[in-house]
Amino acid sequence: MAVSVSRDLTVQVLEDVNAVKLTDTQQALRAAIQRGEPKSLGVSQVMLGLMVMSYSIPLHLTHITEVVNLGVPWWSGLTFITAGVVAIILDKHCTMKILRVCLIASGVSTVLSVVAVIIYSVDMSRNPGSPCVVTSYGPCDEEHYATMLSRGLKSSLLLFTLTQTVISAIVCFLLFRQRRSFGQYSSLHQAAPLTPTTITAPDFY
């Protein structure tokens, strides 16, 4: 903080150069992050998480497989929603602390998405669709329709999870690049005065 004293004993507090640089860097960080549109990506993650969890509900009414036993749609969907909410918060409150939290959440979401994709793929290969057996009540038995419904739902969940993997990977890449660029400014959330302040000495006469 620079201080100047004039001849009439007026004390003027000048702008702090470091504070100005810090604020400019904070604004640059916000602009850089908003160019990546974290809010849009966060909303997409939340919507995908909700869709994964809602699409998994009918799986409990069909043939129970490893996907249902391990609860893959539920923990993966909750992870997607959490990562999306943190990304939306980052868009509103752009600080290095929230950036690191968002980076960690997106990284975890990416890893768990890959794990979920593997589980879906293995489950679908181990549980093929039941062949159509003609019965007196219709062209195929109930087992055929149940397995076909289960595979259809798992295919949709696999597609949603692949999309989430791509989105989380993009968010991780963008945030990691910004963290490397602005990582030295660890206290960007601290505000500093930008305008000069004038203090007039009291009149002793």
Rank of each mutant, 00 (worst) to 15 (best):
N127W: 00
S155W: 11
L48S: 07
D123V: 01
N127E: 09
Q26F: 13
W74H: 15
A19R: 01
P58K: 01
L99S: 04
L9F: 14
D141Q: 00
S6P: 13
V11S: 04
V17Q: 14
M124V: 06
Y205I: 13
D24C: 13
L48Q: 00
T110W: 07
S136P: 06
T65M: 07
Y205D: 13
L157N: 03
S109C: 11
G129I: 08
A105P: 08
E143I: 11
R126W: 13
F160T: 04
Q12V: 07
M1V: 15
T165I: 14
V133K: 12
V20W: 09
L14Y: 07
S155D: 13
S181L: 14
G129W: 06
D24I: 13
M96K: 10
V101D: 15
C172N: 10
T25S: 10
S76T: 13
Y55A: 13
A116W: 03
T198V: 08
Q178R: 09
P202R: 03
I119F: 08
A105E: 08
T110Q: 12
L194E: 07
N69W: 10
K154E: 09
I81V: 02
M96C: 09
F173N: 15
L90Y: 04
V17G: 11
A146C: 12
A83M: 00
L78V: 05
R151D: 10
I88L: 09
D123P: 02
L14F: 09
Q45H: 05
E66L: 06
T163K: 02
S150K: 01
A191N: 12
P139R: 04
Q12N: 11
S106G: 07
L59C: 05
D16P: 03
M53C: 08
V133Q: 15
S125Y: 14
L99Q: 03
P202K: 06
G71K: 00
L9E: 11
C132Y: 01
M51L: 15
T200A: 14
H63I: 15
K154T: 05
D8N: 08
P202I: 06
P139G: 02
I89Q: 06
L50W: 06
A116I: 00
K39A: 09
S109Y: 03
C172Y: 08
Q34I: 10
V122R: 09
F173G: 15
V13I: 15
L9G: 12
Q34S: 12
T10M: 07
I89M: 08
Y55L: 15
L22N: 07
M51Y: 14
P38W: 03
I57Y: 11
V46M: 02
D91Y: 00
Y120N: 05
W75T: 01
I88M: 07
V111I: 10
V166Q: 04
S6W: 10
V46Q: 01
V108S: 11
V17Y: 14
F176T: 15
V13N: 10
F80H: 06
F176W: 15
Y137P: 14
T10K: 05
Q178I: 08
L103G: 15
F160Q: 02
L70N: 03
K21N: 12
V67K: 02
V68F: 03
G49Y: 02
S155K: 12
S76E: 12
L103P: 10
S168N: 02
A201H: 12
T198C: 08
T95N: 01
A192E: 14
